[in-house]
Structures are given as structure tokens and as C-alpha cells.
Design a protein around this nucleic acid. Sequence first.
DNA 1: AATGAATGAGATTTCATTCAT
DNA 2: AATGAATGAAATCTCATTCAT
Lengths: 195, 195, 195, 195
Amino acid sequence: MRGTFTEQARGIQIVSAAIEVIAEHGYSAASMGRIADRIGVSRALLNYHFRNREALIEAVVTEVYATGYRAVRPGMDAETTASGQLRAFIRGSVNFYLQSPQHIAALTEIIAGTQKGDFRPVAEHVSTELEAVALLFRDGQRAGEFRDFDPYVMARSVRGALDATLGARAADPDLDLDHCGDELIMLFENATKAG
Amino acid sequence: MRGTFTEQARGIQIVSAAIEVIAEHGYSAASMGRIADRIGVSRALLNYHFRNREALIEAVVTEVYATGYRAVRPGMDAETTASGQLRAFIRGSVNFYLQSPQHIAALTEIIAGTQKGDFRPVAEHVSTELEAVALLFRDGQRAGEFRDFDPYVMARSVRGALDATLGARAADPDLDLDHCGDELIMLFENATKAG
Amino acid sequence: MRGTFTEQARGIQIVSAAIEVIAEHGYSAASMGRIADRIGVSRALLNYHFRNREALIEAVVTEVYATGYRAVRPGMDAETTASGQLRAFIRGSVNFYLQSPQHIAALTEIIAGTQKGDFRPVAEHVSTELEAVALLFRDGQRAGEFRDFDPYVMARSVRGALDATLGARAADPDLDLDHCGDELIMLFENATKAG
Amino acid sequence: MRGTFTEQARGIQIVSAAIEVIAEHGYSAASMGRIADRIGVSRALLNYHFRNREALIEAVVTEVYATGYRAVRPGMDAETTASGQLRAFIRGSVNFYLQSPQHIAALTEIIAGTQKGDFRPVAEHVSTELEAVALLFRDGQRAGEFRDFDPYVMARSVRGALDATLGARAADPDLDLDHCGDELIMLFENATKAG
DNA sequence: AATGAATGAGATTTCATTCAT
DNA sequence: AATGAATGAAATCTCATTCAT
């Protein structure tokens, strides 16, 4: 039965395996076979739990964003000022990477591998996040904390700077992410602050 | 003979077709067959001109970077201050996109599609560019134009912000890139300027 | 599960088909496609049962040697003298050909087709057999049955003479193998006997 | 023009290159491309000088047999007895290998690679040689030098023993061919000698 | 709930050959 | 006499998916 406990457990197990495999081998090399092998299960089982590969990828994306949300949101909610929330967002994102590098890696791979074509499992999440950050900027501007700038361009730039940093860390595990986080916070504080 | 006029012409034609197809369909969907079809030749011809798919992709990357260099460099060289060069770099990058959106799109796809695995055709170009921009920042700091910050984090952030902006434009052709360029210039001027 | 009845049955069926096709068309003409066609299955099925062509060829070689061993060994074990075993070996080899000409033909083709290059699926079997026959000769020499000669040269010559004979039979189905067997036995009796 | 000096010279050059490449890489890996590369010439040139690959292979076979004939025949003609000729044949064959190992290797590869199918470039040469050796045995039997045996089986056995020995040498360059030659001579003297 | 068996589509590559120049 | 350009055919392999059990 759909929704069974076993069924749910298997689903989570498969999604986890998928995250690992995508993070390690990349999106297109993460074949159903490789994911199935990772948990010692038949390929057919993945098709039993997920209608097709796209559905599995979508589940992965949902899972990653949910995890990220849980990692970043509390810190932001604890802040009362927009600039505080911005700091919390950057710091939280960096920490999320430190805690769940495979989630980020998998997500990056999926974004990369699905830019073209009909299947865009991330589009909605991306614009949701973008909206949230842009809103943060707008609020800050209204509150007089931030200077006048296009909140969407700024939001995309934060996202891009984070992505670039996290990508660099993926390539070089010795990169000091804490330091980078400090630098990014300073960068965007200077970039946004009023007056 | 290698270097024949016809040979070169075909080579260019194939690389151009590859750029188009990659830009449209993405890296992994850009099969030799599809690229060949685009110019109405046999698949075997691509293997005649390029030892294998990797070699063709490498040629694409080289071509894109060469084009980008020609588009961005002159503007930077015309500037004498570090902050002027930074402005020129951002402006030039945005203009490059406006002139050659497919080049950028193809490059993005290739970067995305080759992150994992042995074949990393872009790695060297990326770090070369990163070094150049980081050097620019260091020079500006020494000259007292820029405040104190980690030049590599800043360089990666510029790159990331540009990528995010250009990616957004790819998704939404109505996005006003000139405006975004202005915003990015202001963003990084505020982020870097001394005092 | 590996080792399922159906799995084994298919495996045997595929190996048999491979033997037939190789025997008929030769090693390099025995493509996965032709073998698959022979039993009316898809090419992909062969790759499902055997990781790749090499693995299938190896299975063929193993099967042929196993069959040959079963055909030749009992007769040799029934003999107590070295010269009796030599006779049994030659006779058994000829009979093996009469019973399973395709096995021999396939093996010959595989040996022929894989002499150069890294893939040498037969090397070990060949040297194992050579050792066994050379040992037989050495024992016979120690027992005083055989004259003094280099047992390895003799063993290779027996193998070579058998191969040449069986090759001739492949070219001319009218060749009387029983007669050839008698002649070969006499030949090597005279060649080896003491005094 | 066909028959031109240049044309002939090129033909020889191509055949030599083919022998080398076949000897090194095997029959099926000896593509027109690889052979052409060996002498730094275009693939198309091979097709200019030889109607097709088969024709080139035939030329190779002819060349190898001609060379072998020149290497072995004189020694045999110098002998007056059948057993002397047999010795000369074996010794000459071994020496031929020592002098022209690539010729032998190429021939072996071609025989191996063309056993099945329509194209049998060696068949005639093989049976010509076989006839000659069988005739030698018949003559020896009539002269009372040799015992009674089937001359064709014996001829094939000599051929087979030589092939096996030369094959072993190909696998192990340390094999002492002179010693093997002595052993083979003794082997077949014992195998053939009267009473 | 899970699997083994099987398939069809598609990808890359190699090759012998042709043809205009 | 020689070549560059081009092709069509074939081969191997991988993959997502289906289906009966």
C-alpha cells in the first residue's frame, strides 16, 4: 500500500542513496542501476517506488530543499533586523554545506544537469528562495537599513556568490569555509548597507 | 594536411554547431549525432575532425574562452584604475553575454556536465580567470583603492554573481541585462571600495 | 539471484549460441548481435547476462575446456603406463573433436583471434594442458618407457599435430579422423619410445 | 601507371608495413589506417595501390610465402636423401623464423583471422606446401628410408609441430629455437625412420 | 513489496571505402 | 601518384523501463 511505513522507509532510503550517488558521480552518471546498487536492491524496485527517474530526482530536490530550509530558517527567524537575517542566511547556508555537503553537491549536480529541456525540478524552489531573499532586501530597504538597489539582482548575487564558494570548496576540501562565510558576510554588508 | 583551409572551416563549423546544440539541449543531450545532424553531415565526420567527443568539447571550451577574452579584455586594458578594470570586467562580461548568449550557455552546460569525473575541460580556464580577477583586487588594495578583503573570495563572488545573473537571463529573456550590469557594478563597488 | 535456474539456463544457451556462431563465422565476426540473433533475443540481454563481450568469451573458453576435460581425462586415468596415457590423450582429443567439433572450432577461433592484445582468455588453460602433457612425458622417461627428449618440445608438438589435424578436418569434412588418430598415435609412439 | 617503378616500390613498402603491423597488432587490429600511419601515408593511398584490404592481405601472404620459400628451399635442394631434406625443412623453417619473425607472425595472424568466411588467402599456399612435404615423405618411403605411415598426416604434424613451437617462441622470446629445432629433427627422425 | 528477465533506444567509436582534386 | 574529406555500416555498451511472478 502507498503510504505504508515500510514504503516510506524505502522511499527515504532510496532518496538518500540517490543523493549520495549524485553527489559522488554527478547527475547523468547517477543511473538507476548505480543508485539501486548502493542499497543492494534491484533497479526495478526504484521504478516501483518512483514512477520514473524524474520522479526520484524530484523527490531528491524536495528533500534537499527541506533539509536546507530546516538548517537555515531558524537562524534567520532569530534575527530581528534585515541585515541580521542576511548574515544568518549566509552563515546558515555555509553551515548547511558543512553539515550536509552531499546534499548541496547533489543539488548542484541536478541544477547543472537539468537546465535545458522540459524537466526543471528545481525551478520553483529556486524562485521561491529568490523571492524570500529579495523580500528580505526590500524589507531592509524600507526599514532604512539598506541602500537603494535592485533586490532581485542582489538576491541572485548572494545566491551566486554562495554557489561559487561552495563549488570552490567542492574542488578544494582545504578551503576554509568559515573564513569564506565571514568574508561573504562582510562583502554583502558593505554592498547593501545604507549611506 | 592539418590546418588546411577546408579542415579549419569544417572544424569551426562543427564547433559552432556544437555550441548551438549544447546551448539548446544541454551538455549530455548534445550527442555527436545531434551535432552532426545540425550541419547535415555524418556522425563519422565529427570523429574525422575530432579524435573523440572530449576533444570536440575541449575545442568548444577553447573557442568560448577565446571569444570571451576578446570581448572583455580590451575594455579592461583601456582602464587604468583597479576599480575601472572591475567595472570593465563586469560590463564586458554582460556585453559578451548579450552578444554571444549561446557561447555562455554552452559553457555553463559544459561546466555543469563535467564537474565530476576525470574530464574537466574547463578547470584550467576557470582558475586562470579567477587568478586574473584576484590579482586585480590585490592590485587595487595595494593602490589603496579597495578595502581589505580576501581577493579570492571576492573574485569568486563576482564570477558567481555574474553566473547567477546570466543564468537568470537564460531563463527569462526579458531580463534587462544592462540594468543588471549597472546594479552589479554598483554592488561590487560598494563591496570593495576603501573606507 | 545469480545462479537462478533460468539465469543458468540462459547463460548456457547464450554460451552455446556463442560457440556455434564463433565456430561458423570466426571470432571477430561473432558479434554480440549475431549471437543474440541466433537465439532470438535482444543484444542487450547478452549484456545483462555477461558484463561484456570478453566475459562471454571467457565463459565460452571455460565451457570448452571443461567439456574437453570431461571427454579426455577419463580415458587417460584408465591407463597405467605413460605411453598408454599418451595414446589415450591423442585418441580422446580426436574423439572430442568428433563429438564436439564446434567446441574445438570455436576454441581455435578464439585462440587465433586473441593472440595479440591484452585479452588472452586461453593462455592459462593452454599452459595448464601443456604442463600436464609434459609431466606425462617426464614420468614416462623416468619409468624408462620413453627415450630422452625435451618434454616441452614434445608436448607442444603433440598439441600442434593435433591442431593441424583438426584444422584439416575443419577444412575437409571427409577427412577420416579415426585413421588420423591411429597415425598420430603411431607417430608419437615411434617418436618417444625408448631404445 | 601500373607497373611503374615507383608504383612497385610503394607496393613493397606497403606490404612491408602491413607485415609489421599485423605481426604486432594482429590481423583484425591491422586496419588500413594503422598500416598507412606506419609509413606516413594516407589511407586512400593503400586503396589506390590495392583494390581493397583483401588484395593487400593476399599480397602479404604471397610475399611471406615467397620469402619463406627462398629461405627454406635451397637447404632442401642441397640434400640428396629424403631424411636429409626433412632435416633441412625443419632447420630451414626454424631459421626462417629466426631471420624473419615478423613474416611468420603476420602469416600466423592472417591464417588465424581468415579461417572462416569466404576469404581464404592462405589455403592454396598451405596445401601446396603440404603437398610438397607429403611428396618428400612418399619419396622417402619408396626409397626405403622411412617406415610406412600416412604422408599427409605426417606432413600436417610437422607443420603443426613447427607452428606450435614458433607460437611458443612468440610468447616467450627466451625460448631457445636452435635447441627446439634439434629436438624436432630428432622427433621426426624417430617418427619416420624405417624399421 | 520486490525481483529477475528482457527490451528498445540511443550513444560513441572504428573502419574500409569512395571521390574530387 | 597521392590526398583530404566524407560516408555508411557495424560493433559494443549503457540505460530507463516494463512485466510476470
